[in-house]
Amino acid sequence: MLEIRGLTATVDGREILHGIDLDVPAGEVHAIMGPNGSGKSTLAHVLAGRDGYEVTGGRVGFGGRDLLALAPEERAAAGLFLAFQYPVELPGVGNANFLRTALNAVRRARGESELDAVQFLKLARAEAKRLSMPEDMLKRNVNVGFSGGEKKRNEVLQMAILRPRLAILDETDSGLDIDALRIVADGVNALRGPQTSALVITHYQRLLDHIVPDRVHVLAHGRIVRSGGAELARQLELEGYAGMAADAA
């Protein structure tokens, strides 16, 4: 599904990723853990195609395509979804209109028929209910006046509606209380299937109690320094990052 080979990237001329190698096969959930400043969010943004992140080497294959050659909207149409660490507020853009425009853009690109307003609202209401979101969140402007937890749930709602093949969650757990965490985790688990994958980026192990990963990778100083099974996350929780980062140096 996702094949990263020797990926290097700079931000403002400074190299942040020093050569990432990573495979996420179809149907698997991988976690990326690491201390602040290790390059976790940079990796997420590079994969989503954000301006200002310059890829200086390596390649990324996504479902057999060259991901780095695609515009952000083409990556979304190909099935990539990034849940933002800091979801962006869009004053003047209604949430329902935003979601429907996004869904229909993606459906068009995939050669599927567009949903009309009635069909869409039925779908959106059902998904919102599953995520325990108040229905009026669909009527409000995108993320405007949302609490931290509501913003994260709105990301998961978008993910549920767009049904990506690879979901990247960039510290989606930060700032969530335990109930919200469970709702977010349920949203991700509901997407799991033989054809869908997820890359869960997190600082803490607690999200991984709810989304149990197939593989855990430790990122430090822009490199993956260790990979293992789900038990690696618990080991990290006990021992901290310091030892592993030192191993890499």
Partner: peptide, 25 residues
């Protein structure tokens, strides 16, 4: 730029994303 990227990352083409933001304005 952040708003534009957010819209595009959801599959909305750059021109349409710009139009949405202008209409919002």
């Amino acid at each position: 730029a952040e708003q534009l990227f957010y819209l595009r990352s959801r599959g909305i083409a750059a021109t349409d994303a710009r139009a949405m933001l202008v209409r919002a304005f």
